[in-house]
Design a protein around this nucleic acid. Structure first.
Length: 716
DNA sequence: TAATCCTCCGCGGGACGTAC
DNA sequence: GTACGTCCCGCGGAGGATTA
């Protein structure tokens, strides 16, 4: 936490699952003999099913005032398990695949930590109640040796989102209730939708300088074509029955300004080598033609390649024949935004549920890739009256995303650094549409988000120039690139002020001024070349403020509960969850804000808020019953959630700035995303920048583990 | 003295779960 | 399809210790 003088003790808890084998674990928890001694975490060494105690751990344990029972226990267990393994392997020479079973007794002194996150009879997460009990325990133990951070709720009222249920006045609600009693079936509160009004899509398309939007739907499985068609019909209020366009026939979705074309594209979309794909796209050329001011978006079918697609290939090689990155690159090269939807998975052809969430979310994300901004951003940013003077709704909100992609196993190239950015630019005239501009380190110039993303996707991740650099040198160079980007942006903005949002975790290695420990010092005192984004620019070109956002679970304190002071009479009420914005009292400088989030999984309709009232030790067993109402899943395998928080820390670079106004605006832009039904962890501009990176064809995370794993028998 | 080994640490990221 | 939460591994830089 910034601007706090005393050390901050952050307490949290986690569920660690215990493995039945030690020789495949990286870590063990060890119970020390004697009373009141902490549990030790001991790292193990070696690989390939032969892990044992590391030399360093040996020394550390030796130096501790303790007997050698832990070391002996680890060594004994490692030997015993390796023996079991050797026998299984020897047997496998005769019978084929080795089958490994380790004893499943309750561990004694040594508790091996489950090395991988895989299906397990116990789910993750501790639940809210557990955190509250822990909080009380800490308060009791520390008494007045430590004091909790003081956080006060702010007056921020969160924007009403299109996805929220309809807001209904009391009079209208009464009228509807009366009508329902009279037999009508109107809903008391209409359900919200994440889909924008067709009219506002058209407005955004026109504002971007196009005459119409054409969605080109490329498919190779009838079922997928039908799902796309159904979703379009639903969101544009068309009659689904008569809707059965021929291949290549352009159908009207909304007043001639939004249309769709379907094309069967078997050769283009199925897995295989990259050669011949551009040719295979030919039949759709007319539909993809953007001349005459048409904004084109491609909506494609895909599936994850398996051994069926290319018999004989190893899992790692399947990545090379995946059509998705190949086709995405081709479409991006033609300045066409693309979005994919899975036609089948391991279970076979996907049978959509109602509503068909995957297809709907895919279509929404295509709007995002096209850079369409409707009025939801302007609605969300409406400031409190006292902030109107500074006016966060009249400034540009810029987000910079920085990521290093490390080398994966078997890769030879050096780590790559990716920087993407977006700028949410206010209209020159109030009431006009906001614009989204994009920038990337691969194509370092500001353009409409759509073009910036397409060009970024058409290019390989930039390789590091100038030979091998030191850590410091590399990040200073990235800082310089970003300063130039901001300089360019200032010209585009033509005098409108702007703020820059970055994630603390990934950005503090470039900018000293973001670090907690530097909050009381001055520019030029750190090791880094740059103090804050834009700080090296001329004074009148600098951003108004840098907004530091942090979501790291080990750096942002977890909220446990809140107290509401009742206004009507003296008294307080304890609340369990909150999604409000809180201001943290600091010892010097400005305050810092915490935006509390309730995970949707915890709050969602089916979860039943596991862990709200008791801890995992009281988890309920499964109930098997003929009676449907009595049936219940076991609670233990489910995930148990707790509240999370987003830290928002505005650092002003001039004295016009209202810190609180910027904290409010940031919270509002987390609450209202471009095209998502809930909250996002990052505000719109930063989120859109991260999305650009994650949709890149080279952003893949299908790394193969070389580590040998025991075959765990399916049982229970 | 330079090269190599070893471990810590920061942080990227994979896997799995739920929600809409 | 995307989003987030949880919890673990493991890469690669930094820097000390060891070896050629």
């Amino acid at each position: 936490m910034p601007n706090i003088l005393t050390p901050v003790l952050m307490v949290t808890s986690r569920v660690t699952r215990i493995s039945d084998s030690l020789i495949y674990s990286r870590k063990v928890l060890a119970i020390q003999p004697g009373k009141n001694r902490p549990i030790l975490e001991v790292a193990l060494h070696g690989g390939g099913g032969a892990r044992t105690i590391s030399r360093y751990a040996l020394e550390a344990l030796g130096r501790l005032d303790m007997d050698y029972s832990i070391l002996k226990a680890i060594a004994t267990r490692s030997r015993a398990e390796q023996l079991i393994r050797a026998e299984a392997v020897a047997k496998a020479v005769k019978d084929g695949k080795p089958k490994l079973r380790f004893p499943r007794e309750r561990p004694d002194q040594i508790w091996p930590v489950l090395p991988k996150n895989r299906q397990f009879p116990i789910g993750v997460g501790t639940g809210m109640h557990h955190l509250r009990v822990l909080n009380q325990h800490i308060l009791n133990r520390f008494q007045d040796l430590a004091e909790p951070l003081v956080a006060r709720a702010t007056t921020l009222t969160l924007p009403h989102r299109p996805t929220d249920p309809e807001r209904v006045s009391k009079a209208e609600m009464d009228r509807r209730k009366a009508e329902r009693e009279a037999g009508s079936d109107i809903p008391l509160r209409g359900k919200g939708t994440a889909f924008p009004e067709p009219a506002s899509i058209t407005a955004a398309v026109k504002a971007a300088g196009f005459t119409k939007l054409r969605l080109v739907c490329l498919w190779y499985r009838d079922e997928t074509r039908l799902r796309m068609l159904t979703t379009l019909a639903k969101t544009y209020n068309l009659d689904n029955k008569g809707l059965d366009p021929r291949d290549g026939q352009e159908i009207d979705l909304y007043g001639g300004t939004i249309t769709a074309v379907f094309h069967f594209m078997g050769d283009f979309l199925t897995h295989g080598s990259p050669s011949g794909r551009t040719k295979a796209l030919k039949p759709a050329d007319a539909a993809l033609d953007a001349s005459g001011g048409v904004l084109v978006g491609a909506w494609c079918e895909t599936h994850i390649p398996t051994a069926d697609d290319a018999p004989g290939l190893k899992p790692a090689e399947l990545e090379d024949i995946d059509a998705k990155p190949q086709t995405k690159t081709i479409l991006a090269g033609r300045d066409i935004a693309s979005q994919y939807v899975l036609g089948k998975n391991a279970q076979g052809v996907i049978q959509p549920k109602a509503p068909d969430h995957p297809t709907e979310m895919a279509l929404l994300d295509l709007y995002r890739s096209l850079g369409i901004i409707d009025d939801r951003i302007a609605n969300a940013l409406r400031p409190e009256p006292r902030h109107a003077l500074y006016g966060p709704d009249r400034i540009a909100h810029v987000g910079f995303h920085i990521r290093q992609q490390n080398k994966r196993k078997g890769e030879r190239t050096s780590p790559k650094i990716v920087v993407t950015a977006t700028a949410l630019v206010p209209p020159a005239k109030r009431g006009d549409v906001w614009q989204l501009r994009g920038w990337s380190s691969a194509v370092p110039r500001w353009q409409p988000y759509r073009s910036a993303q397409n060009q970024f996707h058409a290019n390989q991740y930039p390789q590091e120039a100038g030979g091998k650099k030191s850590y410091r040198h590399r990040w200073d160079d990235i800082g310089a690139v970003i300063e130039r980007a901001l300089e360019d942006l200032v010209e585009e903005l033509d005098g409108r002020p702007y703020v820059v949002t970055v994630d603390e975790d990934s950005a503090r290695r470039i900018w000293d001024g973001l670090q907690n420990s530097k909050q009381s010092s001055h520019p030029g005192t750190g090791k880094n070349k740059y103090w804050l984004p834009g700080y090296s620019l001329q004074e009148d070109e600098r951003p108004d403020a840098i907004i530091r956002v942090n979501i790291a679970d080990d750096r942002v304190p977890p909220p446990v509960a809140y107290t509401r002071v009742l206004s009507t009479r003296d008294g307080e009420k304890e609340g369990e969850t909150t999604n409000a914005l809180y201001e943290i009292e600091t010892d010097f400088g400005t305050p810092v804000w915490l935006l509390c989030n309730v995970p949707r999984n915890y709050d969602g309709g089916n979860s039943g808020r596991l862990g709200a009232k008791y801890t995992r030790w009281d988890a309920k067993r499964a109930v098997i019953s003929e009676n449907r109402e009595d049936r219940r899943k076991s609670e233990m395998p489910e995930p148990w959630y707790t509240m999370t928080a987003t830290e928002i820390f505005p650092i002003a670079l001039n004295d016009r700035v209202s810190h609180e106004a910027l904290a409010f605006a940031t919270a509002q832009l987390c609450h209202q995303t471009m095209y998502w039904s809930g909250r996002a962890r990052y505000p719109v501009a930063l989120h859109a920048a991260i999305q650009m990176d994650e949709d890149h064809p080279q952003y893949r995370r299908t790394a193969q583990s070389a580590d040998e794993e025991p075959d765990i028998d399916e049982q229970e």
